[in-house]
Design a protein around this nucleic acid. Structure first.
Lengths: 232, 232
DNA sequence: CGGCTTGAATAAGTCATACCTTTGGGTCTA
DNA sequence: TAGACCCAAAGGTATGACTTATTCAAGCCG
């Protein structure tokens, strides 16, 4: 999953530093300095910088150095960029953006899933709905989170659209971030759990409209809760 | 925009080759061979491979070589991956995926735009709607395409959500691909143009429901046309 | 005979260095 | 002052030497 070796290590420093605004747009990074600061060779620095370039976060220019590009240029769908932003300063903005994205995508995915889900998909969704109910009643936040992530991932996958399916890690990151940063009620609301059961049932019954409506209620609720909680 | 220099050139060979299935999952690339085949140095090969690794398209492993990963692992939201797939074999699958994504995102973006668009945004949308009408009547496909792309980009940007805004190049690629591959009527349908005007008017009037509905009609229509045209 | 250890071969990973190419800016000249 | 010109600075590329991890197989032990 992660980029390997020293370039990965360097990236793990530079990426968050840029994403958090510690190195704002316009900052000039010079290869030689990076070598010295991190005690690595040219090769390593170049590979890390190349990756940042491919994410459109920096732009190397001869005679001038490697400059940090404005946030509006970044590849905001890149999983690494999303993770870096969630980790640091841009967290609230990132959560809000992702919240809107979820509102757009997840209901559509639920509708598609109701049409295209395989029998295995349906079985899995039912099982996960049960798990959610159980862990919610037990107020086991950790287990609830795990199953919640699995549930949304299952819906996205069952949609049969590869691009939706690939958003599973992103949605997972949002849910995790929400729990970690105490943006969630200490105990999952029974109403929310009921909605998850509704989604599962609608998909199993092959009812796209119902599935979409229930899922929309879930993600709109999550977004509103987010907006109400985030102060910045 | 593009990755610069020799690594970029190498990437422009390897990326499409992998995306098109010419180098299927499991294929082993050895650095030494790539050097010889493309007449470049290790430095260049390593940087190109690192970028492919960051897109999750290949996985370098010691003692074994750099193996091509299955398509399901790829970073399907990466603009380069999308472009490569649109260019080659995976084109139909890619267009379908993107079509569904548009159906999910663009109506939501239109609704947000109706709430948050600035006065400049609204002016621009009105102007673009006029341009669309004019070029459609003149059956000037090239100019129509250009304004169509600009229109959808403007809606996405006006939504105020950075992630939606970043999909503008992706949507542009779909529209371009559709025109290039003759998946469009030779003359834009007046009905479709009317819908674009409806979207612009609804956003200008601040009517989210109407904007969303009109935009949904546009993208659903586009998707259905696509499904009807694509044979594979 | 089967499983475990061990060692050698292999390919990627890293480093250091030399040299090339582009480009921004200063200088010199008309 | 305007223009041509030159130089230094920074990234770009090439290469050789060395390191490290990993696979595979030979060989050893139970």
């Amino acid at each position: 999953m992660e980029i390997q070796g020293l370039p990965g290590r360097l990236l793990a420093h530079l990426g968050p530093a840029i994403a958090s605004g510690e190195l704002p747009a316009g900052t000039v990074l010079r290869a030689e300095e990076l070598e010295a600061q991190h005690g690595v060779s040219r090769t390593v620095v170049r590979e890390a910088v190349r990756i940042l370039e491919s994410m459109r976060m920096v732009e190397p220019r001869r005679r001038v150095g490697t400059t940090v590009r404005p946030q509006s240029d970044w590849d905001v769908f890149d999983p690494l960029v999303i993770r870096w932003r969630l980790a640091g300063a841009g967290r609230s903005a990132q959560l809000r953006s992702l919240g809107s994205l979820r509102v757009a995508v997840e209901p559509a995915a639920a509708a598609l899933a109701a049409r295209h889900a395989s029998d295995d998909d349906r079985r899995e969704l039912s099982a996960l709905a049960v798990e959610l109910t159980v862990t919610a009643r037990a107020a086991d936040l950790e287990a609830f989170l795990e199953h919640d992530i699995a549930f949304h991932a299952a819906v996205l996958r069952a949609s049969g659209n590869e691009m939706f399916a690939h958003l599973k890690d992103t949605v997972g990151a949002v849910l995790t971030g929400r729990t970690e940063h105490r943006l969630m009620p200490h105990r999952p609301r029974e109403y929310a759990v009921q909605l998850h059961r509704d989604v599962a049932e609608a998909i199993c019954a092959g009812d796209p409209e119902l599935a979409e409506r229930a899922m929309r209620t879930i993600v709109v609720g999550a977004l509103e809760e987010l907006d109400a909680t985030l102060t910045d």
